[in-house]
């Protein structure tokens, strides 16, 4: 600090502590609620001394919410999205930065513009695509009247029927969310800062494009990849709208969506202890990832948005 301001410093720490308390309060309070039996948790106001029912509530929440299965689904979805996004973004950015070809700018612009098309603004038609992912091909085929053409060509009646539904499948949960303008943009920015000499030297030594990518670019990108893993894992795990749309089978639902069934409604027993235990269990994986990889997380958050 620039000068000595004892009073202001005291206030700084007090405000800071109050701020941290306000931010942490929902979590602390839910943790206490998760340790209480039903008759305690439904008292008004709820006692603030932790009870001894923590394990009972957690096991109850685990089995009632089918959490084992649902957290596994969330995990598969989050991991799939994370690695899928990073993989296709990094090779996409490599293609855009290190090659000169005719459609380069078009390709980059088309990826970049997806920034303006989040799932939320194209709910119904994206659902239709997921219900039959080959639908666009089928539509193009029909539009060009290729059935007639093939029939005429082969002399037999021919009808092409493409159908591949992604509903209630891991592919459906992952694939549509794998394209990422921000990741591609991040890798592009990073590649642009990589010294030209590295590429020239590699070329002089006779390295092919893919060797250069594998041996030089990929190792240089590790910090960026680590940072993105944290961000994208949290993003994938916390998805709500998309899994809600495409899963109808309870066994394929993700954990964040499954929680809704545990919230006590007006006529139910007010089993908030179980509902909050489940909420705490479900939020645990992404919170752990963020806290344990904090440095990468902060880096990733700031770099990605820039």
């Amino acid at each position: 600090m620039v000068e000595k301001t004892p009073i202001l410093d005291t206030f700084t720490y007090i405000f800071l502590m109050v701020g941290i308390l306000i931010v942490g309060f929902p979590m602390i309070y839910s943790l206490i609620a998760a340790t209480l039996p039903l008759e305690e948790v439904s008292k008004v106001p709820m006692p603030l001394i932790p009870g001894d029912q923590f394990i009972t509530n957690m096991t109850e929440a685990w089995s009632r919410g089918n959490l084992g299965n649902q957290i596994f689904n969330s995990f598969v979805m989050a991991t799939g999205i994370t690695f899928g996004k990073i993989a296709i973004s990094i090779i996409g950015a490599f293609s855009i930065v290190y090659f000169d070809y005719r459609l380069r700018v078009v390709a980059f612009a088309s990826v970049f513009c997806t920034l303006m098309l989040p799932v939320e603004v194209r709910i119904m038609p994206t659902y239709e695509v997921a219900a039959n992912v080959l639908g666009p091909m089928q539509a193009t085929w029909d539009f060009l009247h290729l059935n007639g053409l093939v029939s005429w060509f082969t002399g037999n009646d021919f009808e092409l029927n493409l159908n591949w539904s992604l509903l209630d499948s891991y592919t459906g949960l992952i694939l549509p969310l794998v394209a990422s303008a921000t990741c591609t943009f991040l890798f592009r920015q990073f590649f642009l800062t990589v010294p030209e000499e590295l590429c020239e030297a590699a070329k002089m030594d006779g390295a092919s494009a893919m060797t250069f990518f594998r041996k030089i670019l990929l190792p240089l990108s590790t910090t960026n990849i680590a940072a993105l893993i944290v961000i994208e894992f949290v993003y994938g795990y916390n998805q709500y709208l998309w899994p809600l749309l495409i899963t109808t089978n309870p066994d394929m639902t993700t954990a964040v969506i499954g929680l809704q069934d545990l919230i006590p409604q007006a006529d139910d027993l007010p089993e908030w202890n179980v509902a909050l235990s489940a909420a705490l269990l479900v939020m645990l994986p992404p919170v752990m990832v963020v806290l344990s990889m904090q440095r990468w997380f902060v880096k990733g958050l700031i770099e990605k948005e820039k």
Binding site: G19, N238, Y240, V256, I257, V282, M283, V290, L291, F297
Partner: peptide
Amino acid sequence: LIWPYAVAPAI
């Protein structure tokens, strides 16, 4: 202060 970022909006 950082951990609420990892909490899903629904939670």
